[in-house]
């Protein structure tokens, strides 16, 4: 490997470390109480995407409009179920930032497994970092490993 290539690898490593670990200038919003009403029917949540700030105390009011539904938040491991006519509340502190799926945890019919929503706690920094690292890795790969000469015909 040439000197130039070694230089590139070291430079890429440093750039990667910056992308992965550099503290971003994130706007810090003071934590607030948030009550979000989520209606559940076969087989969707409305709204299906919730956005909160990190540190918020989130109360999800689950209203079912047809059969018994549930709501389970991946990553937080908290859940609640609601019968039609009996609104239930789920309160938790959004102390982990990122994007988390929530899904129905009471079998509610044929498409039950596709009843999914998303709660976004702050901006999804992990996604952007991963995207940056992927682009960096592909650039390095393209420069380091140039297209091989055309294979000789056998």
């Amino acid at each position: 490997m040439s000197r130039k290539q070694w230089f590139l690898i070291i430079f890429a490593g440093l750039a990667g470390a910056v992308i992965a670990f550099a503290p971003l200038p994130v706007r810090v919003t003071p934590p607030a109480q948030r009550t979000l009403r989520v209606e559940a029917n076969q087989f969707a949540y409305s709204p299906a995407v919730l956005a909160v700030n990190p540190g918020d105390t989130v109360t999800i009011e689950l209203v079912s409009t047809d059969v018994v539904h549930g709501l389970y938040v991946d990553g937080y491991g908290v859940s609640v179920t609601a019968d039609p006519g009996q609104t239930t509340r789920l309160t938790f502190t959004a102390d982990r930032s990122g994007s988390f799926r929530f899904r129905c945890n009471v079998t509610c019919g044929a498409l039950h497994t596709f009843m999914i929503g998303k709660i976004q706690v702050g901006s999804n920094i992990l996604l952007w970092r991963a995207l940056g690292l992927t682009i960096l890795a592909s650039l390095v790969a393209i420069i380091l490993f140039p297209r091989p000469a055309k294979a000789q015909a056998a």
Partner: peptide, 19 residues
Amino acid sequence: FAQNCAACHGENGAGNGVF
């Protein structure tokens, strides 16, 4: 009432339940 009536008559009795 909550278990049997509220789905139609509403949780606060106002006749505005989910059904």
